[in-house]
């Protein structure tokens, strides 16, 4: 993480002047627990991907099949909704 800027260095009024800079804001540090993915149990139903409020479920092809492939832990706040909606026990909070 870049060093924090001073009052003289930042735009006034909290304005954001670099579009998309929330990518630099690693909200994953907020989490007390985060989900663990067991790819072997994933059926690729995509419930977790659609429910995740922070778009933290990575997806791709595994042996030619669409699957969840991982978690973006730097942004996952640990809300657990992915675990709650997974019907196949492929996600667990740890």
């Amino acid at each position: 993480m870049s060093p924090l800027k001073t009052a003289r260095e930042i735009p006034i009024g909290g304005m954001i002047v670099e579009p998309g800079n929330s990518l630099n804001y690693h909200t994953g540090s907020w989490a007390s627990k985060q989900p663990r993915l067991d790819i072997a149990k994933c059926t690729g139903c995509a419930f977790c991907m659609n429910y995740c409020p922070d778009d933290c479920i990575k997806s791709g092809q595994v042996d030619g099949q669409f699957r969840a492939t991982g978690i973006k832990y730097e942004y996952c706040k640990g809300c657990g909704v992915c675990v709650a909606v997974c019907k196949f026990d492929a996600l667990k909070m740890e």
């Binding site: 924090l4 800027k5 001073t6 009052a7 930042i10 006034i12 009024g13 909290g14």
Partner: peptide
């Protein structure tokens, strides 16, 4: 950053 913005 809130404190810096108030100082501004």
């Amino acid at each position: 950053y809130y404190f810096e913005t108030q100082k501004q």
